[in-house]
Amino acid sequence: MPEDIEIRTLKRIAAHVSEIWSCHPEPTHLLFQLDRDNEACALRAVRRVGSGYVRVERSFASQVAQDAWIFDDHLPWDELGVELEVLMADREGCAALAKESGGWWRLALCSQTPEAEIYQAYEAHTVIDGRDPGAEDAGRGYDLLQAYLTAVHEGRTPSVVLAEHVGHTVTLNRPNGVDRVELTDGDEPPSEGTAVDCIDCRTNLHDQWSQPGDALATGDAILNELDVIDAVTALLHHADGWHAAQTVLDRALHILIQEQQMALTLPDFYDKDADPRALDTISGAVAAYYSAAARFGLTGSLVAQQSLTRFRQETEAQRLASLRIMREGLTGQAP
């Protein structure tokens, strides 16, 4: 299968899976088997967490509602099957596809990083049913990423910027002189054209809101250093399954340095239709939080180190659970 056709097929499959399993965090892989007629069956959308897989669940009010979803003619079930058949008809050399034991196949849904399949050693049937400890953080990471992209394209709102400066002393340049005040909760944004300089941060607040194109603008207010660590950790959970955590953090440091050395523009990876799974999109958001951490005396490297430590701690339990399930399957008995 020519490479461009394969990429189009993978993109269609990923789009169909996202429409059928329309929830966050999104699936990172599709597991399936082949029946006697070589048609894909036993579809299982999963998300890779650490070194294990967790089934992507949808909430249903009843069994009737779940059956209605399974047999919904408006969902692209048939289209997904056709694309899988196209892929399986000439599957040699497809780096995004891995053959597993027990007749299972595993397909990575992010065609940009098929090499992720190389270091994933666990088998497709090693799927953990139950609560995913990283799922809530991954969902929050997706929301943070969307808020960041909105801030890049539309600018940050005055209320968000002011919230970050509550307790700071600012100067207001008015027609009758300069006022020096301490910002408090509930303060209204100054009138248009009024310069607002923060003495504590040595920045102009007007420069921080309503400025589209600022690639280092976070979406939500950052009130303390824990907000930064929490946000970056959540973004790492969102990226998990598509990109290694260290890769995201290293790329973010590169973006931070790059953007600090030139006038901030709107790079291609901040396009209106930015792929929320793309490395540069996720790392761009992490770089914005690196930048925000500077006001608390934290360097990007320190944020990366603390966030990576937390991320690994939160995925360790999942890794051990998947390891136990794999061993149980190999030995035929519980460990």
Rank of each mutant, 00 (worst) to 15 (best):
A95C: 10
L216A: 04
S307L: 02
D185T: 10
F60P: 01
A285T: 10
V160S: 13
L80S: 06
P189M: 00
D129T: 14
P133M: 06
H24T: 11
H16R: 07
D143F: 08
R47M: 04
A304T: 01
Y142N: 11
V86L: 14
R47S: 09
I128H: 06
Q146S: 14
N173G: 12
A195Q: 13
E6Y: 00
V228P: 02
D275S: 01
M88T: 03
C41V: 13
V17M: 02
S301N: 11
V286K: 03
A217D: 06
E192H: 02
C23F: 08
H238Y: 03
Y122S: 14
R180Q: 15
A195W: 06
S18G: 09
R327V: 11
H243N: 07
E83G: 06
A252P: 03
L279E: 05
L10D: 05
A116H: 12
L308A: 12
D200K: 03
H238F: 02
H238Q: 06
V160Q: 13
V49P: 04
P114I: 03
T126G: 12
K11A: 15
G213Y: 01
K272L: 15
G284Y: 08
R55F: 12
K11S: 15
G93D: 06
P133W: 06
V49Y: 02
D137R: 13
H243P: 05
A195S: 13
Q146M: 15
S210L: 14
L31P: 06
V232R: 01
A294M: 08
G102Y: 02
M88D: 05
L205Q: 03
